[in-house]
Write a protein that binds this DNA or RNA. Structure first.
Lengths: 132, 132
DNA sequence: CTTGACCTTCCAGTAACTGGAAACCGTAGG
DNA sequence: CCTACGGTTTCCAGTTACTGGAAGGTCAAG
């Protein structure tokens, strides 16, 4: 399929898809006329990258994770370790996102002009302590 | 407190905190010696931005969301509408993140060299159809 | 009173796009 | 067959969001 179709199906603009090819994230076929020709597997990869990027993973992380996704050396120990590490990071992100949702929900529902910026409930939701 | 302390407590590097001031996301006090002086409320904002950024929200989205967080006009209808819209987006992100986790879990656990790149289970987890 | 860790500004570089120009491809209408 | 137009190509420049490094000021400890 052409880049426009791949763009629609992956949720990424054509420009971005070409950019991902430039940096070697993806190697689509070329048709005789020079047009890029994407397989459904390519679209799955693109969609995967779109998701991961929108959730705060870097392109380099995506590149590593793509090696899990359709690579023969998928069973190697370090690739599995990478997956486990990313799973832990995803769980952290899930918790942070849930916290953000609770905080926003609270602000939208209950903080209509009454509470201070340092309202204790918001303080709790905002999270404390040292990070990283 | 100085920028180093604010950095530790927010999880952001000092460079990034200065950058956020450059683009007007934050207006810390200045001590007599010219050093930036951060309040705990400033740190809460920074931590909020750190979280939101790491979860895929843009700086502009953070700027808007910060207006919820400690602003007098918090009760205005459009600000509340913004919060609701962001809540919907967060729920979408939560679902995507959960999907990503399931997919990675599956790859790490069951796809050790046996399954095709277009393994039907992965296909299902990767998500299909048009986005945006 | 010097040393080292911190802070300041400024300027340059990087990552990840994004927009626009100029030209080629491909189909549908006249 | 010609033309229009929508999609595609490459290339180059601009933007967003940092990030690194230089040159110098501040401050508490020894």
């Amino acid at each position: 399929m052409n880049i426009g179709t791949a763009a629609q199906q992956s949720g990424l603009p054509p420009k971005t898809i070409r950019y991902y090819e430039d940096i070697g994230l993806l190697r689509p076929d070329r048709a005789d006329n020079g047009y890029r020709d994407y397989s459904t597997a390519d679209v799955h990869r693109l969609r995967f990258v779109q998701r991961s990027r929108s959730l705060g993973f870097s392109v380099e992380e995506c590149r590593q994770l793509l090696s899990l996704y359709g690579d023969k050396e998928r069973e190697s120990a370090d690739v599995k370790a990478l997956a486990e590490a990313k799973l832990a990071e995803i769980d952290r992100k899930l918790a942070e996102l849930a916290g953000l949702r609770d905080m926003l929900r609270h602000l939208a529902d209950h903080c209509n002009g009454d509470d201070r910026p340092d309202c204790p409930i918001i303080d709790g939701l905002a999270g404390h302590g040292t990070v990283q």
